[in-house]
Amino acid sequence: MSIQHFRVALIPFFAAFCLPVFAHPETLVKVKDAEDQLGARVGYIELDLNSGKILESFRPEERFPMMSTFKVLLCGAVLSRVDAGQEQLGRRIHYSQNDLVEYSPVTEKHLTDGMTVRELCSAAITMSDNTAANLLLTTIGGPKELTAFLHNMGDHVTRLDRWEPELNEAIPNDERDTTMPAAMATTLRKLLTGELLTLASRQQLIDWMEADKVAGPLLRSALPAGWFIADKSGAGERGSRGIIAALGPDGKPSRIVVIYTTGSQATMDERNRQIAEIGASLIKHW
């Protein structure tokens, strides 16, 4: 067993022997301040990774656009098919120029040779490549099948209805392509620590998230040296922004954090800054 596999296998073990965790309302004060600064709703939840206990939450059962955070769930569904012998990570998928959609920095470079399922998941999570996500959605049967996968996990809230990039439209009061912070946090925890996926697939999923290259201005910008984070960000229309993450000190994750916002007129930089400040408060009061 590799060191990384050992780390993920012992996530519940280490967490069980940690000192009790206590909620700190100071972080919620910052979440509410972010709402004021952005002029928009902000949803927040913080779960203990081992027990699933909610440590703090704000608007945990209000719907927010998922945006690209759905790509972690998508690759979880792909990995479940791999575990069941219905898919192979090494299978190569070929596609054409007509398949390319807006923001496809990886797939646009491989029109000639195609990409493997493993490479597509890596591109979808680490670079948020939209064509990679659409190609992977095709392998599982489309958005409705991802929703069905989530329902089978016990998540009857999260739903995907459309493809990239239309799913980022974020129309107010439109339930399409949305989740709730509580539902997303619980589902992410199941994917990373539950028995739904094999140990190898859980490790692969967290490795992809740990290698995320496009979430630097968010929670990662607030992390002290030595902290662990595996995350996936999302951005959408109407001032929408979000991030889902597993993080913790001492090089291992111990909490799940989900943050979503929508309806702001603020710039992307300002949305990023507010999420980073929430992260800084979380870490300060850990």
Results as ranks from 00 to 15, higher is better:
1 M>A: 01
2 S>Q: 13
15 A>N: 06
16 A>P: 09
19 L>P: 10
24 H>P: 06
28 L>I: 03
28 L>H: 12
30 K>T: 15
32 K>D: 05
33 D>C: 15
38 L>T: 09
40 A>Q: 09
42 V>H: 02
45 I>V: 15
45 I>S: 06
47 L>A: 08
52 G>R: 05
54 I>H: 11
56 E>N: 11
57 S>H: 12
59 R>S: 05
60 P>G: 15
61 E>G: 15
66 M>Q: 06
67 M>Y: 02
67 M>N: 13
69 T>R: 00
76 G>T: 07
76 G>F: 04
77 A>D: 09
78 V>A: 06
81 R>M: 08
82 V>S: 09
82 V>H: 09
83 D>E: 10
83 D>L: 02
84 A>C: 11
85 G>N: 11
85 G>F: 06
86 Q>I: 14
86 Q>G: 11
87 E>Y: 05
88 Q>C: 10
94 H>P: 09
94 H>Q: 13
97 Q>A: 13
99 D>N: 09
100 L>K: 05
103 Y>K: 02
103 Y>F: 09
103 Y>Q: 04
104 S>E: 01
105 P>I: 07
108 E>C: 07
111 L>E: 07
112 T>L: 15
116 T>S: 10
116 T>A: 07
118 R>S: 15
121 C>A: 08
121 C>V: 04
123 A>M: 03
124 A>I: 05
128 S>K: 00
128 S>N: 00
130 N>H: 00
133 A>T: 11
134 N>E: 02
136 L>Q: 01
136 L>D: 00
137 L>K: 01
141 G>S: 06
143 P>R: 04
145 E>N: 15
146 L>Y: 06
148 A>H: 13
150 L>E: 02
151 H>F: 10
155 D>G: 01
157 V>R: 12
157 V>E: 12
158 T>S: 11
160 L>P: 04
162 R>Q: 08
163 W>M: 13
164 E>H: 01
165 P>I: 08
166 E>D: 14
167 L>M: 12
167 L>Y: 02
168 N>Q: 07
169 E>N: 11
169 E>F: 12
171 I>S: 14
174 D>F: 03
175 E>H: 14
176 R>L: 08
176 R>W: 07
179 T>Y: 00
182 A>E: 10
185 A>C: 07
187 T>W: 04
187 T>H: 05
190 K>T: 14
192 L>N: 02
193 T>N: 15
196 L>R: 15
199 L>V: 15
201 S>T: 08
202 R>W: 03
204 Q>P: 02
206 I>E: 09
208 W>Q: 03
210 E>K: 11
211 A>K: 12
212 D>L: 02
212 D>E: 04
212 D>H: 05
217 P>E: 10
227 W>N: 01
231 D>H: 04
231 D>Y: 04
231 D>N: 05
233 S>C: 02
236 G>C: 03
237 E>Q: 14
238 R>T: 10
238 R>M: 14
239 G>E: 01
239 G>S: 05
242 G>A: 10
244 I>H: 01
245 A>I: 02
246 A>N: 05
251 G>P: 08
252 K>F: 10
256 I>T: 03
257 V>F: 04
264 S>C: 07
267 T>Y: 08
268 M>E: 06
268 M>Q: 08
269 D>N: 12
270 E>V: 12
270 E>W: 07
272 N>H: 04
278 I>D: 00
278 I>T: 03
279 G>L: 04
280 A>E: 15
284 K>S: 14
285 H>T: 15
